[in-house]
């Protein structure tokens, strides 16, 4: 059986994350701002008794901010024992692509600032596989060409624990 992915929609583009990396989805009712945090960090939220830092994907992708709606979602990711929330415009679907996820063409990789590490098509729709480590890493690193996953150790400084 193929892998299950959670679909995140930001500015009409569909991104996917493996369900195994996602702990749960939550509605987004606003985050508590954190002083001196990175610009793409929306703040922290309480999820099931834990304080979870939240990354605004629009800010992270350098897109204009939009008003929160009923569909705005916090995708709580689980990397090791860390929980990091990603704020997406929508997150209403799960997909199970049958095809192989391939690395994205160079043009797309450059345009998506290295946050996309794979691309797959399902039912005539393109899904971009997000590089979670890069997203939750340092903002200074976004220009790097290396799309391979690293442990991200030194970049986690940008996020409060």
């Amino acid at each position: 059986m193929s892998t299950l992915y959670v679909v995140l929609e930001v500015a009409d583009a569909a991104y996917i994350l493996p369900a195994s990396e996602v702990r749960e989805l939550e509605t987004f009712a606003g985050a508590t701002p954190v002083p001196a945090a990175a610009a793409f960090v929306a703040g922290v939220v309480h999820i099931r008794g834990r304080v979870v830092p939240v990354v605004d994907l629009r800010r992270r992708f350098g897109l204009p901010a939009v008003e929160r709606t009923l569909e705005t979602r916090v995708v709580v990711t689980e990397v090791g024992d860390r929980l990091v929330g990603l704020v997406a415009d929508r997150a209403r679907e799960l997909v199970r692509p049958a095809a192989e996820i391939t690395p994205p063409p160079r043009v797309i990789a450059e345009q998506t600032l290295g946050f996309v590490k794979g691309i797959v098509e399902l039912d005539k729709r393109i899904y971009l596989l997000l590089d979670l480590d890069r997203i939750i890493g340092e903002e200074q690193d976004h220009g790097e060409r290396d799309l391979h996953l690293d442990d991200g150790g030194p970049r986690r400084r940008a996020l409060p624990r």
């Binding site: 299950l4 959670v6 369900a19 195994s20 996602v22 702990r23 749960e24 989805l25 939550e26 509605t27 009923l70 569909e71 979602r73 997150a91 209403r92 679907e93 799960l94």
Partner: peptide, 21 residues
């Protein structure tokens, strides 16, 4: 109805993720 549908979606997604786990 929208609100409820939204919540249902959210719950079902979480259930799916839970089920996958």
């Amino acid at each position: 109805i929208n609100l409820i549908a939204d919540r249902t979606n959210l719950l079902s997604l979480n259930a799916s993720i839970e089920a996958a786990r």
